[in-house]
Amino acid sequence: MKQLCLALVVAALLPLLARADDLSYSYIQAGYASSELDDLTFDGASVQGSVAFGTSNFYAVVNHESGSDGDFDMTQTSAGVGYHFDLSANADVFTELAYIANEVEYTGSSGYTSDDNGYRVTAGLRGMFSSSFEAILAVHYTDVNDFGSGYGGTLGAVIHFSPRWSLYGSYTSATRDDVFDDGNMDLKTTAAGVRFSF
Rank of each mutant, 00 (worst) to 15 (best):
A135G: 15
S35C: 06
E103F: 09
A123Q: 11
G127R: 05
F94I: 13
V61T: 11
N145S: 10
V51T: 06
Y59V: 00
F94V: 09
S88F: 00
G31K: 04
F53R: 01
L87A: 11
E103D: 15
R120C: 13
G67N: 07
A52I: 07
S114Y: 09
L40I: 08
F58W: 10
A60T: 07
L17F: 08
S131Q: 13
A89W: 02
L40F: 15
D143W: 04
D115G: 14
D116Q: 09
L23K: 01
A98N: 08
A60F: 06
T95D: 04
V104Y: 09
A52R: 10
D38I: 07
R120S: 15
F94L: 10
Y59E: 00
L40Q: 15
N145M: 08
D86Y: 09
I100C: 06
Y112T: 03
R126P: 05
G124H: 02
F133N: 07
V121S: 08
F42G: 01
S130W: 04
D43P: 06
V93T: 10
T75G: 08
I100R: 14
D71A: 13
T154S: 13
D116G: 12
F42L: 14
T122I: 08
V121M: 12
M128N: 03
T142C: 01
Q48F: 05
G49H: 03
S34D: 13
V139N: 04
G111V: 13
G118S: 06
Y141T: 05
